[in-house]
Every structure is written in C-alpha cells, then in structure tokens.
C-alpha cells in the first residue's frame, strides 16, 4: 500500500543523503521525495511517498527515526490528510487540438502559464492520482515534457507535525 511519510529533520548538510541512502541500502521503494526548509530555518520538512506491506512501513518509520538528524515523523496515511503535487506539462497545441487542450486544462483546473503558437505549458496541482488522470485524458502524443514535484502532504484539521 502507498504511504506518505512526513519527516521533520535537522536542516543540515547531508541529511537528505542519509534518508536516500537508507532507502537504497535497505531496499525500500521511494516513489517520490521532496524536501525544503520550514518556517524554522533549523528544520527541513521532507515528504516521502513509499510503497510496502505494513511490516515494511513499520521498519521504514523505525529506521528513519533511528537517523540522528530525524527529529519527528508521521505516517500521514494513518489518518486524514491532504496530498498535493504540482505538475508542469508542456503540450503541443496546434490546429483543432489547441482549443481541446485549453478545455482539458480548464476541466482539471489547470492554468496555462506559457503560450507559443505551437504549444502550451500547463500548471496543474492535485493528488498524484489526479495528475495521472490528466495525463491519461489528453492525447499522449501531444505531451512534449512533464515535470512533477512529487507529493507534499499535511494532516487534516488539528493533526499537526511540529517540534
């Protein structure tokens, strides 16, 4: 099953490579990994999307907790949470496809953020599944380039991960 693990870790050089190294050394899957500083400059927030059985996920969280730089973590998938991912897609937009592409972007609540006479660049935000659905919905041959950030997540309501 897919899990979104959110980690607060010391904002120190090498912390990211410890996490990445742990996953490769122990053979865990990483679907995506994002990391950026938080409002507290000493802390980074990392969101890891991984797939595994309950036993594997338990080991992953234990092993992550064992890393000296990890301050706190939560498996967001254990409760209500919001997941968002940003995607930039460059698509061919010529002839009658041009209008169709605009319509598809609207349906998925995407925004066209760059336009030339041959292509559009569309910005789309949502769960990973929504972004997948958009890519499925448009003509595959029209896709020139996709750039995805990987998922970020946050707990719903008063479910908060902080130090």
């Amino acid at each position: 099953m897919k899990h979104i693990i959110s980690v607060l870790l010391e904002n120190e050089a090498g912390a990211l490579s410890r996490v990445a190294g742990l996953f490769s050394a122990r053979g865990y899957n990483i679907e995506s990994l994002t990391v950026a500083p938080t409002e507290d400059a000493t802390l980074s927030r990392m969101t890891i999307v991984t797939v595994g059985s309950d036993e594997v996920i338990e080991q992953i969280t234990k092993q992550l907790n064992k890393l000296i730089e990890v301050v706190k973590l939560v498996d967001l998938s254990d409760g209500d949470h919001i997941e968002r991912e940003l995607m930039l897609v460059k698509v061919r937009a010529v002839g009658k496809d041009r209008e169709e592409m605009k319509r598809m972007a609207d349906i998925f609540r995407g925004r066209i953020i760059d336009v030339t006479d041959k292509d559009y660049t569309i910005e789309l935000t949502g769960t990973g599944a929504k972004l997948d659905a958009f890519l499925k919905a448009i003509d595959r041959g029209a896709i020139l380039e996709t750039v995805r950030t990987g998922a970020s997540g946050i707990g719903r309501g008063d479910r908060v991960l902080r130090v």
Partner: peptide, 11 residues
C-alpha cells in the same frame, strides 16, 4: 534498546 530490531525478522 533499538525499536528497529523488534519485529524486523520475526513478529
């Protein structure tokens, strides 16, 4: 002492 040693290979 190490939680990750528990239920790693054996439940």
């Amino acid at each position: 002492i190490d939680p990750s040693s528990i239920s790693k290979r054996v439940k």
